[in-house]
Computed example of a mutant assay.
Amino acid sequence: MSKRTPIRLTQGAARFNYRIAGLGFRDGHVLVHRRARALLDLSGRSGEIGETSEETLKREMMEEFGLTVPVLRLLWIVENFFHYEQRDWHELGFYYLMEIPAEFPFQPHEIIHRVEDGDNHLQFKWVPATRAALTALDIPPYFIADEIENLPGAPRHLVWRDGNLDD
């Protein structure tokens, strides 16, 4: 296997990131993960040189779950501008709807899967797929709380600036 190279640029305190993420649902819940001592977040990673966004998502899910996770369709392409860990981020994100296989555990509100991913200790759990739940749990990117109960029927382009949506 050749060395993988994330698509990420850093200039001073600013960082550009190419992010690929997936939303998987079951019984009114969405799957999220937490890195050790970090925020809850959607499953995904930085895109990598030589892979399509869909290939990155499928590979990451195989690495994290040990399962083939079908990628159903693209939901959003997001230009996301935010401040995190003393950096100003400019992130280009591709967010997909994915199908979590039935054999993946489902116990709402509990940590149902753990995995070591390099220096990251990931913990996965199901949370209610509602605006109220995502807002209360402070799950970024924050535009998803407004969209979670009514997913777009076709890919949608969004610009999100630390709490403000520019359609």
Rank of each mutant, 00 (worst) to 15 (best):
Y18F: 11
F94I: 06
L9K: 07
R37W: 04
P105M: 10
R45K: 08
F106R: 13
N164P: 00
G50Q: 09
F104L: 15
M62P: 00
T10H: 03
E48I: 09
I148C: 00
F106W: 05
K3H: 04
N164V: 12
A132T: 13
N120T: 07
L75P: 00
L9P: 00
E55K: 07
W160Y: 13
E91Q: 12
E147L: 09
P6N: 10
G50D: 10
T130I: 12
F143M: 09
S2P: 10
E147G: 01
P155S: 09
F16P: 06
A133S: 15
T68L: 08
S2W: 09
L134T: 07
L74E: 08
D138L: 13
R114A: 05
Y96L: 02
L75E: 00
W160N: 04
D167F: 06
R15E: 10
F143L: 15
R26A: 01
H109Y: 11
A13N: 12
A133R: 11
M1G: 13
Y142I: 03
E55W: 03
S2I: 14
S53D: 11
W126S: 04
H109T: 08
Q86G: 01
A21F: 01
I139H: 04
A133Y: 03
L42K: 03
H90V: 12
L122F: 09
A14Q: 14
E103D: 15
F81A: 10
D162I: 13
E63C: 04
L151Y: 04
R15I: 14
T10N: 14
E79N: 08
T10K: 12
G153R: 13
E110N: 11
N17K: 15
E51S: 07
P101H: 08
I112K: 05
D117N: 13
E85S: 14
I100S: 04
G93Q: 12
N120D: 15
R73N: 06
G22E: 03
E48Y: 04
Y84F: 13
I77P: 00
Y142K: 11
A38C: 08
P70T: 08
E63K: 12
V115I: 10
E99N: 07
A36M: 08
R37Y: 05
G44S: 07
L74V: 10
I20H: 02
G24Y: 00
M1A: 07
R161V: 11
Y142R: 15
D117S: 15
V30N: 03
F94E: 11
P105H: 06
L158C: 01
P108F: 07
H90L: 09
T135G: 00
V32H: 05
D119N: 13
V32D: 04
F81K: 11
V69K: 05
I49V: 15
Q123W: 02
S2Y: 07
L97W: 01
V115G: 03
T56C: 13
I139C: 01
A14K: 15
A102M: 10
E79P: 01
A13Y: 08
I20D: 00
M1S: 12
T130N: 05
A145W: 02
F94T: 14
M98Y: 02
P152L: 06
G50S: 10
V127N: 01
Y95P: 00
M98P: 00
P128F: 04
W89I: 15
M1F: 03
G22H: 07
G47Y: 02
V115R: 09
K125W: 02
